[in-house]
Each structure stands twice: as C-alpha cells, then as structure tokens.
Design a protein around this nucleic acid. Sequence first.
DNA 1: CGGTTATGGTCAT
DNA 2: TGACCCTAACCGC
Length: 270
Amino acid sequence: MPEGHTLHRLARDLEAAFAGRRVRSASPQGRFAAEAARLDGRVLESAEAFGKHLFVAFADVPEQVHVHLGLYGSFVISPGVGHPVVGQVRWRLEAQASADLRGPNACELLTPPEVDAVLGRLGPDPLRADADPDRAWHRIHRSQVPIAALLMDQSVLAGVGNVYRAEVLFRHRVAPMTAGRRLPRVRWNAMWDDLRELMQVGVERGRIDTVRPEHEPEAMGRDPRADDHGGEVYVYRRDGQPCLVCATPIRRRLVAGRNLFWCPSCQQRG
DNA sequence: CGGTTATGGTCAT
DNA sequence: TGACCCTAACCGC
C-alpha cells in the first residue's frame, strides 16, 4: 500500500531495526542475489525516503540500494531471524529482526550519481521538512493539465498517490479536472499544508485517514468500521456510495489510467 | 482454478 | 494510449 507515507514509515522502521547493526543480506528469490551478497555482513548505516523512493546505505559501500515498491510491492519487518521464506522474497535483511521485500518495482544498487539522477526527477515531498511548495506551484500555475493529473506527477510533487490526490481534492472542494493554471494560489498553499498534515498522520498510523471528526461515520450515525483499504476516507473507492457530507453518489472516472473518485456536488471550485 | 484488481512507473508507439 | 513489469488477495465458477 505504497504512497509516500508508507516509504517514510518504512525508512523509520528500518533504521530502528537495523541502523548501526551488522546485517545478513540475501535474495531468496535470486533476482538481487549478486548485490545482496555484496552487502552481506556489512553495517547498515541509514534508510531514507524521498517521495515513494527508499534508499538504504551501508558502511564502506558507496552505492545505495534503491527500492521502489510500485503498485503492490511490500517490505515487511518482523521480530526474530530465520523465518521460512514464503512466496517471492527479492531481498531479505536480518539482524535481530528480519525484513522481507516482495514485488518491488525497483530494487537495485545505484552509484551516487545515479541516486542524484533519481532525486533530480522528483518534485518537493510534503513529508520532508526542507521541501519547497513553490517548486510545485511553479509547475502547477502554468499548466493546462488537470490538477488531478498534476498531483500524481512525481516531478511536480513527490509522494502523493491515488488516495491522497482524491482525498485532498475533496477536502478542498476542488473540481478534479480544473486546469492547474486555474487553481488559485491560496488554494494550492492550503492543499500543500493539508497534505503535510495528512501524510504525517499516515506515517504515524500506517494508514490513510482523511475524514474530519464531524464527518466520521459514528458522528453521522453510521457503522464506524474503516473502509476496506484500511483507512477512513471521503471518496477513494466509494463510487456509488453517498458522499459523507452531502449524500450525493460518489463518482469514478479513469484519469491518466488511474481511477479518480470525487463528489460532483461538493467539488465544484478551482 | 482462472480472471480481476491494487495506494506505481517506464518505455515504445 | 497501450504493453509490460512485479506479487498477492479476492471473487466467481
């Protein structure tokens, strides 16, 4: 379930479990075998996330492991070592804990220039303290592309995925097909601040929650059970169901190959 | 058991 | 725009 919050949480957890420790490194599946063997027995130095990209550094190794989870990759940390390998495990780290990487879009050793090249393609990441929202604004305010597409463009903004884009558009009542150049600057500033807070909550809880207290199902007299994807949201994957605010049926439409969800009644402004 | 789906991205056309 | 990559869960038969 990888949007940016997942990777930042993962970086934090990997450091807690492995930083400063000598680790075993292997590729049970074999597709990262040579690289994993090279790192075996070394000290894991750091794990850091930029948008949806994760970089793991080892002492005395100039290259870093670049991990991108893609649509359905997972990197799961569990206590203890020597667990049986279940399914396709691309990379396994072990110290006093274990971490299994499955189904990543990318798992590769990159040289420092190659790392810089990846980072250079990324827009500002709301989860990084030094991120500059003006860099994103510069791209947005001169673009004819719908804001719903711009939010997914990692070179405009890094870390936002299909859930956060739908939810932040709803929370700010923005019509998804509004061209970037039609979005008022004050609106963008508010969306950026909101994303910072929402994604930080995502890091802390390990799930995406976007519903304000006054709209929570319990407060609205509904079953307080979380949505199927694990968090509490306004529109994501709720097509056909009543809007939590106005009861209008939530709509769905494919935008740039991904399902976009929105409330046609609540979301009418630029 | 096979088809579908998924919070993503790249590359070719 | 479409093909393709990667893995697992879920659904209907």
